[in-house]
Design a protein around this nucleic acid. Structure first.
Lengths: 310, 310
DNA sequence: GATTGTTTTGAAAACGTTTTCATTATTTTT
DNA sequence: AAAAATAATGAAAACGTTTTCAAAACAATC
């Protein structure tokens, strides 16, 4: 392994000069910069991160902590992770994967956290390094989609399409996002002067299908689903009752990764903009590392038009 | 941050003794081990990885390189990654995520690679650190499922169920796994004295659905699909032709993550045993780090019985 | 042309650990 | 009980970088 000292010797300068070429080139004369850079290229020198970490106590490494249980990991995490990796690399950082409550910070400059809940938040707030969560929690810098705006979009799309009856299929309200999605539907309906019709189900396509089978949908109905899984169940319930989608039954899901593509008809859905989310998460972290204080960011999702709306 | 020296002072021993308690406890007297461990606990000491890396040139960090394009990432990677993270942590290592051709090894003791192809393999072979790939390539330690055994399982399941006609829906043969899956079907059919019927399609449920719509399936047919996507298409084609699944039409897919669960009927499939794969990948890497030479591992997948076979 | 100020470079120490080697304490052998 | 062998401990150096401080080179001012 070629070290800073090797470069220094080959370029007939001191280690410090080489270090400065890499970190503070403004403090070095142009000719020497050129020389050193050429030697670096010739020797194939790469900075040793352990040495650097030891010297200046920064690790250029961010831990992404995914706290969801392994059986409940949404498939879009693969994408989020890739985007985060890209963004961090672009900022000169690596991403370390964790999926336990290991907040050890000996090797890390900050945390990106997803799936935190309850007592996790207190722990996160007590940390001495920057944190950004994917989700929402007062007092912790976070990135989240604007769930309310999402269901407003969905509801308005179905209202515009002219469905006579507009149902909201919601899930358990224990998580903030579930509440906000419902509020979005409620608000949009209120604004339009329409009566709301809300049901709560487990987040499972079979549950939705069974529930709607009993509900007798009877045509000209729109369904705002809190998740794509519920949307998928609605689609199946409708078709098995002989309803034509989207003529008799319109459906908008929520999340927009994988599930909607694999449905019998491509599901119209509210798309999680994962690339944008990743950008914001890394940006908030970098700002904190630079000493700025930051507030949370809410990304307005987009309506992805499939075949289940007119 | 509390350092080794702090612990040493508090325990009235030298730094070395503390280091030995952590790395070579057999060389330290039992009473001192107990003392030091208590001080470590009291002070909340955590080993500094940069210092350790610098001193012994090991980083206790493995890079997982995912080379697939971001738009082609299979959702089950989220799971594979979680399992790899777990296994590595268990072995005392962290997982660093990469998804580019950055084989920089200044911060890393080895590589786990998925999605490598063509020239990647030469590069991987020229590296000075251990590598394990997910897939198959002569000369590189790898973990892969036994694709041939998988389609044999699938084919035999359908043969046992007594379907009169048994079709194989395959994909482009450019990747070794595609070839092996087809060979498995062929072998099983030959062994049973049956005539093969093989078609190649793009790996897309709509393509499969369209293709089978033209084929006129006519009942008592079994389909061995090279992927769950094709299996899903087959399911839809069959149902839209009025065939009852699994009575008139039996289907077995391949891969077993997400897609089969979301299908109209749970798809019988050949399940990728991701936990087992992760275990083997990490085990092969650890063996190499310990100086052993290793060979590749092929994991026989299991038939996951859904509702598309009798 | 001396004085001040600025830019450029270098030397030494520091970060936290482990390795190597030397020393001391303990046990075993004679 | 002395000698030899072994076990337990410590001191110093090393890993590769950056920080801090000092020195040298150069430019600008009087």
């Amino acid at each position: 392994m070629v070290s800073l000292l090797d470069v220094a010797r080959a370029a007939h300068v001191s280690k410090m000069t080489v270090s400065r070429v890499l970190n503070h080139p403004d403090q070095v004369s142009p000719e020497i910069i050129a020389d050193v850079q050429q030697v670096i290229a010739e020797l194939g020198y790469v900075q040793n991160r352990a040495g650097r970490a030891l010297a200046n106590n920064r690790h250029y490494n961010i831990a992404f902590i995914l706290l969801d249980d392994i059986n409940e990991i949404e498939p879009y995490y693969a994408h989020l992770l890739m985007h985060l990796t890209d963004e961090l690399r672009h900022a000169g950082y690596t991403l370390e994967m964790r999926h336990d409550r290991n907040f050890d910070l000996t090797n890390v400059d900050g945390f990106l956290v997803s799936g935190a809940r309850g007592s996790d938040f207190e722990l996160l707030q007590s940390l001495t390094v920057p944190v950004v969560i994917y989700g929402t929690e007062p007092g912790i810098p976070s990135v989240d989609i604007d769930n309310k705006a999402g269901t407003q979009l969905a509801t308005n799309a179905l209202l515009d399409a002219g469905y006579a009856r507009l149902i909201y299929l919601g899930i358990d309200m224990s998580e903030p996002f579930a509440i906000n999605r419902e509020v979005g539907y409620r608000d949009a309906m209120l604004t339009a002067g329409r009566t709301t019709e809300i049901y709560h189900l487990p987040n499972d396509e079979h549950a939705a299908q069974a529930f709607l089978a009993d509900l007798n949908l009877c045509g000209n109905t729109g369904i705002v689903a809190a998740t794509d899984r519920l949307g998928l169940g609605a689609l199946r319930a409708g078709r098995s009752q002989g309803l034509t989608v989207p003529t008799d039954l319109g459906i908008v899901g929520f999340d927009g990764i994988y599930i909607h593509q694999l449905a019998e008809l491509p599901l119209t859905t509210i798309q999680q903009p994962l690339a944008t989310i990743a950008q914001h998460m890394v940006a908030l972290l970098m700002k904190q590392l630079a000493g700025e204080t930051v507030t949370s960011v809410y990304v307005v999702p987009e309506l992805l038009h499939g075949a289940t709306t007119a």
